[in-house]
């Protein structure tokens, strides 16, 4: 397969970037998008050019590193998949493919397609954890959890923090990410003692990082590789309302 690529190249956070055209040939349709970029980079290195910097790690759809805005979509046109799980057979031979980094004020560009998602780490550090030392894992049924709640918590915990929700949102809002992290703990007894403080602290940190405000367009849900649902955002709104207006908790 042959492709025309328009890839965002940017030296560092302080210089302006631009789209650079590349053509690539003899691509196997069963290659992942990242493997296609590997081949392109191999070509660039052989020509003595600077290879395209991009984030990647596990290449099996669970680490959330491979942030690329491909053909106008977060992680490209494959539903419920990260870039490493996007295969070239999803494209047509001869396609022109745009590849850009996540764009958000809170995700500054480090180089080319690599962005700094440290904002997510700081949101987690603000409250996305349980403080109590729990010791070793207990017997499974020591702490009874409703099956339904366990499922919902598990679905929310599937969030890999990739930032596709921010990238896809017209407001660059991080609400789906924060709502998944708040939901996963709010639904379980271990998260109960700190739930008010957690909601307030994580939302305050989210706002301080410069993410936008959610306007419920649903773009995040549609683009999330782990199919995190909008109901989590509604739950976060409830958690926040409770903590801010009904509880005595202050942060």
């Amino acid at each position: 397969m042959k492709f025309n690529l328009k890839v965002w190249r940017q030296k560092n956070a302080n210089t302006a970037g631009k789209l650079v055209d590349y053509t690539i040939d003899q691509i196997n349709e069963d290659m992942s998008f990242l493997e296609m970029v590997d081949v392109l980079n191999d070509n660039l290195v052989r020509k003595g050019e600077d290879p395209i910097a991009f984030d990647h790690d596990c290449r099996e759809g669970i680490c959330g590193m491979c942030s690329m805005y491909i053909s106008g979509r977060a992680h490209g046109p494959q539903h419920g998949a990260t870039t490493c799980q996007l295969y070239m057979r999803k494209f047509k031979d001869g396609d022109t493919i745009y590849v850009e980094p996540w764009r958000a004020r809170a995700f500054p560009i480090v180089k080319d397609l690599v962005v700094d998602r440290g904002a997510f780490d700081r949101i987690i550090a603000a409250g996305g954890f349980v403080s109590a030392n729990t010791g070793q894992a207990q017997d499974a049924n020591n702490l009874p959890v409703n099956k339904d709640d366990a499922e919902k918590a598990m679905d929310a915990a599937a969030c890999i923090g990739c930032g596709a929700c921010v990238a896809a949102c017209k407001n660059a809002s991080a609400m789906l990410f924060v709502s998944a992290k708040v939901s996963h703990l709010a639904l379980l007894p271990q998260g109960e003692p700190e739930r008010n403080r957690r909601a307030l602290a994580m939302v305050a940190q989210m706002d301080a990082e410069g993410f936008g405000n959610c306007t419920n367009t649903g773009a995040c849900e549609a683009e999330c590789p782990k199919e995190i649902k909008l109901v989590n955002i509604a739950r976060l709104n409830r958690e926040y309302a409770n903590a801010a207006f009904a509880s005595e908790t202050q942060i």
Partner: peptide
């Protein structure tokens, strides 16, 4: 919300 994304995507769907 406009300020939250200072630079827009060149190509978006």
């Amino acid at each position: 919300n406009k300020d939250a994304r200072p630079e827009n995507y060149a190509y978006s769907q």
